[in-house]
């Protein structure tokens, strides 16, 4: 049975409708979890404080983890790669052109030889 939405690659099939159904079920479960929260929560009271220890709450701007702190481990882990690749992006216009000439030359050798 072929639904109009089924995508066939010649090796496998994939039906996005199943995923849409899965998405909807996921959203319903999330909604149910959210609904089961404490309904007597009072906004603006002490209940909203993130710390029970009595420590002062830091300013909002300091709680947020900024972009450059993310994936620090990843870039540190493959530092050797980044140390080679990042400096290639020199930002000098003639270097950009030089790369084009290099690629042309290498391609020419490949195409002429093979």
């Amino acid at each position: 049975m072929a639904l109009p939405t089924v995508l066939s690659s010649g090796y496998g099939l994939w039906d996005p409708i199943l995923w849409v159904i899965a998405f909807i079920i996921g959203i319903v479960i999330a909604w149910m979890l959210w609904k089961s929260g404490v309904s007597s929560y009072k906004k603006g009271s002490e209940q909203g404080r993130p710390y029970l220890s009595g420590n002062a709450e830091p300013a909002k701007g300091e709680v947020h983890i900024r972009a450059s702190n993310l994936y620090w481990g990843f870039t540190e882990g493959i530092k050797g790669y980044y140390q080679r690749v990042v400096p290639l992006h020199t930002g000098i216009a003639t270097d950009y052109l030089l790369w084009i000439f290099w690629v042309t030359g290498i391609l020419l050798i490949i195409v002429m030889v093979v």
């Binding site: 990042v86 400096p87 992006h89 930002g91 000098i92 003639t94």
Partner: peptide
């Protein structure tokens, strides 16, 4: 100087 026009890089 083209070497100094590189505010955008990396």
């Amino acid at each position: 100087n083209v070497d100094e026009i590189r505010e955008l890089k990396e």
